[in-house]
Amino acid sequence: MTLARLGQPVALEVEQQCFALSLHEMPGEVDWRIEFLQWLTRKVVFYLTTLPETDVIQSLLRVERELILETGLHSLEAQAVTEAALVEFQNLGEKERKELVEDQARFQQYSMKEWTALTERYAQIVRSQCQSVKAA
């Protein structure tokens, strides 16, 4: 982390408390990151089902850029997410795609439940592994 190497602590606010992030991998962090990438992949697959098939590739290129800019994914991670989403999308039959689109509300609700669990789990990893610091 560049900021840490320059002497500036890298901090994260969790539930209104600031924590200095470790320069080293925290226990449980890799598993969490994999599940986060899988969650993103499911979200992208669902998004692709709402598009005309002719727009899929162009949309994936845009999604890949957005993943890098908006979520801070490394370019390789963003590429892995979009490539996995494309494979999953292509493996869906027309009936499965239609069912996903028709069941948008349930999918969104399930996705938000997963996101809540992911954020709570990451907060627990940070709280248990990182030192609390005063907010700047």
Rank of each mutant, 00 (worst) to 15 (best):
M1V: 11
M1E: 11
T2Y: 10
A4C: 11
R5A: 15
G7D: 02
V10P: 10
L12F: 14
Q16E: 14
Q17P: 09
L21P: 04
S22Y: 03
L23Q: 12
L23P: 12
H24Y: 12
H24R: 13
M26W: 05
M26F: 06
P27R: 03
D31Y: 15
D31C: 11
R33S: 14
R33L: 08
R33M: 08
F36S: 12
L37S: 02
L37T: 02
Q38S: 08
Q38M: 09
W39G: 06
L40C: 03
T41L: 00
T41C: 01
K43G: 10
K43P: 12
F46D: 02
L48V: 03
T50C: 06
T50F: 06
L51D: 01
P52N: 05
E53D: 13
T54M: 09
D55C: 13
D55K: 11
I57A: 08
Q58E: 15
Q58T: 11
S59K: 10
L60C: 05
L61P: 14
L61S: 13
V63G: 02
L67I: 01
I68D: 04
T71W: 10
G72K: 03
H74K: 05
L76E: 11
L76V: 12
V81P: 01
T82E: 00
A85L: 01
A85G: 01
L86V: 03
V87R: 05
F89M: 00
F89V: 01
N91F: 08
G93Y: 04
R97Q: 01
V101I: 01
V101D: 01
V101M: 00
D103H: 07
R106F: 15
Q109H: 06
Q109Y: 06
Y110P: 13
S111V: 00
M112G: 10
E114R: 03
T116S: 15
L118H: 03
Y122R: 05
Q124F: 14
S128H: 12
Q129C: 15
Q131C: 15
S132Y: 07
V133H: 03
